[in-house]
Amino acid sequence: MAKNHTEAIPLKGITGKASPKPFNLHPILIGSILPFILLVVWEALSRLGVLPSYLLPAPTVIFNTIVDLGADGSLFGHIGITLYRIFLGFLLGAGVALILGSFVGIYRKAEQFFDPIIQAFRSIPSLAWVPLFILWMGIAEASKVTLIAVGVFFPVYLNVVSGILSVDRQLIEVGKMYGLNSYQLVKRIILPASLPSFLIGLRSGLGLGWMFVVAAELMGASQGLGYLLVLGQNTYSPELIIASIVLFALLGKVSDAILKVVENRSLHWQDRMEQR
């Protein structure tokens, strides 16, 4: 029987060469290349004396500082109190933003009533609140947590409102055709449809939360990673300052990665570019 002339002919058969295997690396490995090179160069320059150790100590010195803090047990106390402040501030800020944002997003009158003043508050530089919060609440935990909550509030609020306002009107109409009341529309259509925007708000809010915890701990703390920054400055210990910065970066990255996992699991139904 004659061979079907429409049969595909492998390219290999024509060229006689196998196509080269693509150079595949795990994304984490790809992302580690540049930091690794920078660390090696930094370490080398420090050891050669090009970088003065009293300004920029070598990465191994910074690593040893973190290990020493861990060995004497104080590291976990500093990390613990910073995480506690971030957690409480994030919970408070995101919670209030979710409630108020939902209210403003759903009810037009509430938007007209609340939104102008919220937008005015948003334009106040965050650090301007510090003296007022200290005056009102002292330098204990309450003022720090409140400052972090203020930082978290605005991105979450804005994303909740814009998420609700951009819910597809056509989906609302489907709900109305099935006789859903306002509460059911919110619960079954508006909130799930605005979830992607809310989660983006949470990630932005958490990022700002980490910025604000530094400001909060700089304004008078006796423990925390922000306190280590001040301690490092007062004791001329650049390795302590950089160790604290590294820990902030690591914790910030880990917390964002956790939210990213939550986002991916909650939004598995989305048809996203990222899922290619």
């Binding site: 989906l171 006789g179 139904w269």
Partner: peptide
């Protein structure tokens, strides 16, 4: 007003993207 005696099939499917097919069908 909307009456349950009426059903509407729209020009676009208008499915809830966060619901599975069976949950979309049982939506109402």
């Amino acid at each position: 007003h909307v009456d349950e005696k009426l059903g509407f099939i729209f020009q676009q499917p208008r499915l809830m993207p966060w619901l599975s097919v069976i949950d979309n069908v049982s939506f109402g």
